[in-house]
Design a binder for these strands. Structure first.
Length: 978
DNA sequence: GGTGTATCTCTTTTT
DNA sequence: GAGATACACC
């Protein structure tokens, strides 16, 4: 009988686990101890011994991948091929329950499951239906949206219903009422009340539109089992045996489901390793381990410690590390009672080298040394490339290594989790789709025109953009009428003329096609016509191949997404895609071909469950690994959390477990590497985990030197296609420059080029549109006042109505709310001015002064003069919370520094004060400028002028610069991954 | 030891 | 651009 085969090769503890007859069972399976083997064989054993029929067994996992793998291994073991065992992820299982009982739960039977990006869109589309205030600021209504969605999702992990949250908020309100002096408590009560109402509203709206989210797949299923005893009874009778994989990753709600389903037979077997719990941040409750023993006090506990992966030197180091975590199961009361020990013993890899720590001077030396070592060892035939894995804590740590691998000719694959929409080939396709769907999207058209496919000379594109921008026309219209517009026609070279003609003809044709064809077909046609398809089919290099795979991945997404649309047409699709991108969707780039041997670079999280002969854990310095802990923007109130929270610094403990996971991936060799300098100003300390694992003294860092030449090579800027560089502006020629130009150049020279040189037209952001409307109204009032004319409040409001521009608002509710807020701010402004505001000396006063060969120009919103001197005032509409912030903004404003300099240049004296008047917040930021400010202003202007004259427009991407840049969708250097 | 300024980072991933 | 932290300075 098959029994022999099922127990073949198992050690004693494994055999016990597999053949455990009935009753609850907790299997604590350390890294590499054959966890999956035990589960799959146990399933096979239960069937072979007729303990249960296949359909009476339920096995729950976390990932689709794990479920698929388990299913395959069970199939191999169970002779008759009847794969009726219910092997599913928690979510898939919950989903099935819901679909079978949708009506009883008040759900539409064909409900849709929204992913994160779709949730964001759903919420944003209905943002103004939510009872929000504090968490929906009008200047940036979606500011807290992501945080609220995360909060709701965490609430579901913890099995906290909207009513429970509301009750908590109510308790806080009562407490606050009892303590009227505690302003902080009152604020907290109000915030939670707002969030609780929002959570309830979210559930209501989701139900009304027939949608659920991933969290609902668990909590609705839980509700079903709780509220419908006959449903619960049915499943309890059916599932005689339940197995849970990766038990340390279950959250509270998931364990509740397991408890309910297993209540009748109590044949629940959970398998996991508390030392490998690395998903606390998404709700995993390590305390479920202890919870299991409390819920099933008579549970059998088996500990697997025979490790089939690594040799003892690696295992000992990992154990030394993990001993530093106080909260381990083996230290707990329950753990002791059951004699849990987690010290792993090597049984296959008998001996090997101690894990090594390699420390370097700089990050690039570290990366280079790793690359070189791998190469040497491969050339010496000691390793193969695909024996080696480089594990990083954060995706961004991988860059340096990939660059070094390129330099040394080491083949690699990187499994990141994003970046598809950032690939140049995909950006181009998206730009194409946008240009066809929205002829007024000049940014995309601009990108398309300059692309390899159309190759319109940059001079010609710039000429057309500038023309379009000055006349407020679409770039597309200017292209289309290039032959008629004399200013354009006479200046175009033949080459440009032909390229533009081709571009316009193509786009027109695709617009026609898009009227009837689904998006996928339009895109396909473009790939054919542009010659890409032909090029793709003869992809020669690995790079080409990656490009092709990315394109086909995007293609599949296009087809998936168009299915979700009511009408599959290009416009709908592009709007949908823009929504998704805006909501943060960014699929991973295509996985590289696994057949070519290559070093695998991946995050430690992704490496969980995998093993490699050689492992490098890299960038091991404090604040990188362990990464500094960050709190969630909105947190589940601790009072509502039912699981026992771990004691002490649990962030650091989780990082340590993650490090443990990383170390225990290695079979034969483990290298821990670090460097002193990672590009910041500060020296970095070697990760405490390295010292703990290797039992090193605190000063164990030993620097190495790299060769200077290699250093220089690596810092060489990436080769940039030299786009018809124009001659610099000679020193004798005057350069006109404004504070906005200086500011843009400082932010990023390439942004400066987009805005002020190429003049790529963009849609203005609602906050900008709104700001300029308010500005105009204020200006109208002040000008009249200076001239001695009275303006009634009604007239002021009339001007406001007339000047109102509805560009860019999220929805009409947003527009209405903003408009009302503006009306209020203007009313207040009017009252204050009428009640005795000083009469302005100048309004909208132009200024200009020379700084060397440069001439700085601009315009003061308002200048008030009195006996003590001048006050320069600039009006703002932004959101400022406190006086301190307003003052700081005034103090740090480059604009005001330049204004102060201008005033001194023109009058000989510094203004006594500069002010930022925040109209909506009703705050005034004040600052007294000094020589330091004017010096700084002069230096900033000069630095920008030098760059602009030299036409130096290299991008300086950074998180903050790119985040709100209007060009981040088409800019090849953007630091945003969207 | 307290305060002000300089510096750094802005994860991890599944359903 | 915000928020946290490290460091310098008193």
């Amino acid at each position: 009988m098959a029994g022999d085969r099922i127990l073949d090769g198992l050690n004693a503890a494994q055999r016990e686990a597999v053949t455990h007859d009935a009753g609850p069972l907790l299997i604590i399976a350390g890294a590499g101890t054959g966890k999956t083997t035990v589960i799959t064989r146990r399933i096979a054993w239960l069937i072979a011994r007729k303990k249960a029929r296949p359909e009476e067994i339920l096995a729950l996992t976390f990932t689709d991948k794990a479920a698929a793998e388990m299913e395959e291994r069970v199939d191999q073991l169970v002779p008759y091929g009847y794969a009726d065992v219910e092997i599913a992820t928690f979510h898939a299982f919950g989903d099935r329950l819901l679909r079978e009982h949708a009506l009883e739960l008040g759900l539409q039977p064909d409900f849709r499951v929204l992913n994160r990006a779709e949730q964001v869109i759903f919420f944003r589309d209905r943002l103004f239906q939510f009872p929000l205030e504090r968490y929906r600021p009008l200047g940036d209504p979606t500011k807290h949206l992501q945080a609220m969605i995360t909060l709701i999702s965490r609430m579901k992990d913890e099995d906290i219903a909207p009513e429970a949250y509301a009750a908590h908020a109510e308790r806080l309100r009562a407490l606050a009422a009892a303590a009227p002096d505690d302003a902080e408590l009152a604020a907290r009560a109000a915030q939670h009340a707002e969030l609780a109402r929002t959570y309830a509203k979210y559930q209501e709206l989701m139900a009304a539109s027939g949608a659920i989210d991933f969290g609902d797949q668990i909590v609705h299923a839980l509700r079903l089992l709780r509220q419908r005893p006959y449903v619960l009874g049915g499943y309890q009778r059916r599932f005689k045996y339940i197995l849970v994989d990766e038990f340390q990753d279950t959250n509270w709600a998931q364990f509740e489901i397991v408890k309910l389903l297993g209540a009748r037979h109590a044949n629940v077997a959970a398998v996991g390793d508390d030392n490998q719990a690395i998903y606390r941040w998404r709700g995993a409750a390590v305390s479920n381990f202890r919870g299991f023993l409390q819920h099933f006090p008579r549970a059998r506990v088996l500990v697997l410690t025979e490790n089939y992966r690594s040799h003892h030197r690696i295992l000992d180091a990992a154990y030394r590390l993990i001993l530093n975590n106080p909260d381990r199961l083996e230290e707990s009361e329950e753990g002791r009672r059951h004699g849990v020990t987690k010290k792993l013993a090597a049984v296959r890899e008998l001996d090997g080298a101690e894990p090594q720590h390699l420390h370097y001077e700089t990050a690039s030396q570290e990366a280079d040394a790793v690359a070189q070592l791998i190469r040497e060892r491969v050339e010496a035939r000691a390793w193969k490339y695909d024996d080696v894995a480089v594990l990083v804590r954060s995706n961004s740590d991988a860059d340096q290594f990939l660059r070094s691998f390129n330099l040394r000719g080491v083949p690699w694959t990187f499994s990141g989790n994003a970046g598809l929409y950032g690939r140049p080939e995909i950006r181009l396709l998206i730009a194409f789709l946008r240009a066809v769907a929205h002829p007024d999207d000049s940014v995309s058209l601009h990108y398309l025109a300059l692309s390899d496919i159309y190759q319109v000379p940059i001079v010609d594109v710039t000429r057309c953009s500038t023309y379009a921008d000055r006349r407020h026309r679409w770039l597309f219209d200017v292209f289309r009428r290039a032959e008629e517009l004399r200013e354009i026609r006479d200046e175009l070279e033949d080459e440009g003329r032909e390229a533009i003609r081709r571009l316009v003809a193509d786009l027109t044709r695709y617009m026609e096609l898009a009227r009837e064809m689904p998006t996928g077909e339009v895109l396909y046609q473009f790939l054919v016509d542009s010659g890409w398809l032909a090029r793709m089919s003869k992809a020669a290099t690995a790079r080409d191949e990656a490009e092709v795979q990315n394109i086909s991945k995007f293609f599949r997404r296009v087809q998936d997404a168009s299915k979700a649309l009511r009408y599959d047409n290009l416009r709908e699709f592009v709007n949908h895609l823009d929504g998704l991108i805006d909501a943060g969707e960014d699929p991973a780039v295509a996985e590289a071909d696994v057949e070519t041997p290559a070093v695998r670079v991946l995050t430690v999280h992704k490496a969980k469950g995998l093993e490699f002969p050689v492992v490098f854990l890299v960038s091991l310095v404090q604040d990188k690994f362990p990464l500094r802990g960050r709190r969630e923007a909105l947190e589940v109130p601790v009072e509502l959390i039912r699981e026992t929270l771990p004691a002490g610094d649990f962030h650091q403990q989780e990082e340590r477990r993650l490090f443990y996971v990383g170390m225990t991936r290695a079979r034969r060799e483990l290298y821990l590497t670090s460097a002193r300098d990672y590009g910041g100003a500060r020296q970095r300390k070697v990760s405490q985990f390295v010292l703990e694992a290797l039992d090193l003294p605190k000063d164990a860092a030993r620097p190495f030197k790299a060769k200077a030449v290699e250093e220089i090579q690596r810092f060489a800027p990436p080769a940039e296609p030299d786009a018809a560089r124009l001659a610099p502006i000679p020193p004798e020629q005057e350069l006109l420059i404004s504070h906005k130009q200086v500011d843009d150049y400082q932010t990023c020279p390439l942004k400066y080029r987009y805005v002020h040189v190429l003049r790529v037209p963009i849609l203005r952001h609602h906050a900008v549109v709104y700001g300029s409307t308010i500005h105009k109204v204020v200006e109208h009032y002040l000008l009249r006042r200076t001239a001695g004319n009275y303006t009634s409040l009604e007239d002021l409001q009339a001007v406001y109505e007339r000047e109102w521009d509805n560009q860019g608002f999220l929805t009409w509710e947003h527009e209405e709310a903003r408009k009302a807020a503006g009306r209020q701010a203007l009313t207040r402004f009017w009252h204050e001015e009428e009640a005795g505001g000083t009469k302005p000396t100048y309004v909208e006063k132009e200024f200009g002064f020379s700084l060397g060969a440069d001439r700085v120009r601009g315009r003061f919103d308002r200048v008030d003069q009195d006996l003590f001197g001048a006050t320069i005032i600039d009006y703002k509409t932004g959101d400022v919370a406190a006086q301190k912030v307003a003052d700081r903004r005034a103090k740090e404003s480059l604009q005001l520094k330049i204004y102060a300099l201008a005033w001194r240049e023109m009058t000989g004296a510094l203004p006594q004060r500069v002010e930022l008047r925040f109209l909506e917040a009703n705050l005034v930021g004040r600052h007294t400028p000094d020589e330091g400010d004017t010096e700084e202003a002069g230096a900033a202007v000069e630095a920008a002028a030098v760059g602009i004259r030299a036409r130096a427009f290299e991008a300086t991407p950074s998180y903050s610069a790119c985040r709100y840049c209007a060009y981040n969708q088409v800019c090849p250097f953007t630091a945003t991954r969207e």
